Simulated assay, not measured.
Amino acid sequence: MKTLKLCLVFVMVALATGCATTGNPNRLDAFHNAAPKSILVVPPVNMSTDVQGTTSLLATLPFYLAEKGYYVFPVNTVKTLLEYEGYYEPAEAHAAPPEQLANLFKADSILYVTIHEWTSKYMLLTTTTEVDFEYRIVNADGAELWAARQRMTYTPDNNSTGNPLADLIVMAVTAAAERAAPNYLPLTRQANAAVFYGVNGLPPGPYSPTHEQYYKGLNAAQ
């Protein structure tokens, strides 16, 4: 079932507009050397005006990281403990010394995510929903291991009926519906899938069935 869900997500990625950097075989050297087993996901910093962005993005991250083979600390527990330690706002947790956060949870690495866009732009006959996320994983000592940025946009398709007036009405209704209930969560899942599984995605973690083969291949290539 999980495999089927991932396949569906990848199909949706292909149908959406995204952007990412080109592959660089050396960019993962630090990650390979650190070989983290666990990832602490701190609440994302939200630069948009939609207050739901942080919670929605945070809820979608563990699935993909776990599928890649990493232990992910329960995000709700992490949020509660961070607040207990005085980190009530995501920006405060992002500004805290990584060593302090890692030691608090005994984590090998920390994932920071910034939401740059979480918007739905309405233009009468069309509505474009956009998400733009920046990801960064650091080691327990604060050294950067991996970074990426992913943007996704979605504009509902309107199939022509052959009747110009009817088409205009359909377009207006579809745009209004997307504005009322933006397609944020599917876009968020697509962005996560693209960034973790794409050209510059994360290597398989220690709990992935492909982990041993992946690192054997690295050693053989050296």
Rank of each mutant, 00 (worst) to 15 (best):
L61G: 07
V199M: 14
P36Y: 09
A181K: 13
V72F: 11
Y184D: 08
W146F: 02
A172V: 00
G69L: 11
I115C: 04
Y207I: 08
P206W: 03
T153H: 01
T210I: 13
H211T: 07
A14G: 15
L28M: 11
T77P: 06
N24C: 02
G201R: 13
K5Y: 13
A148G: 14
I169G: 02
A102C: 03
V173Y: 03
T153C: 03
T55Q: 15
Y135Q: 10
S56G: 07
T153Q: 06
E85N: 00
E212R: 12
T174M: 10
D108M: 10
S109I: 04
T210M: 12
L202G: 02
R179M: 12
R179N: 10
I39K: 02
L65S: 10
P43R: 01
Y71W: 09
G217F: 02
T49N: 05
W118K: 01
H211N: 15
G18P: 14
E212M: 12
A191Y: 02
D108E: 12
N26K: 07
A16E: 13
A102L: 02
S208G: 09
A177I: 00
T21E: 15
K121F: 11
Y184K: 01
T188F: 04
A20C: 09
K5M: 09
D141K: 01
E83H: 12
R189I: 06
S120A: 12
N200G: 14
T77L: 13
Q222T: 11
N26H: 06
Q190Y: 15
A30H: 03
V170T: 06
T155R: 06
F73H: 10
S160D: 13
Q213I: 13
G201I: 01
A143V: 12
T210P: 00
P44D: 09
N103C: 07
Y184F: 15
Y135G: 10
G205S: 08
N163R: 00
A143Q: 15
L202E: 03
P182C: 09
R149G: 14
K68C: 09
V131M: 05
L58C: 05
L202D: 03
E67K: 11
V138Q: 14
G201T: 06
N192K: 02
K79T: 14
P25G: 07
R151S: 14
H32S: 04
T60W: 02
G162W: 00
F133P: 07
G69T: 05
L168G: 04
V45W: 11
A14V: 10
P164D: 09
I110F: 01
L57V: 04
R179H: 05
T22A: 12
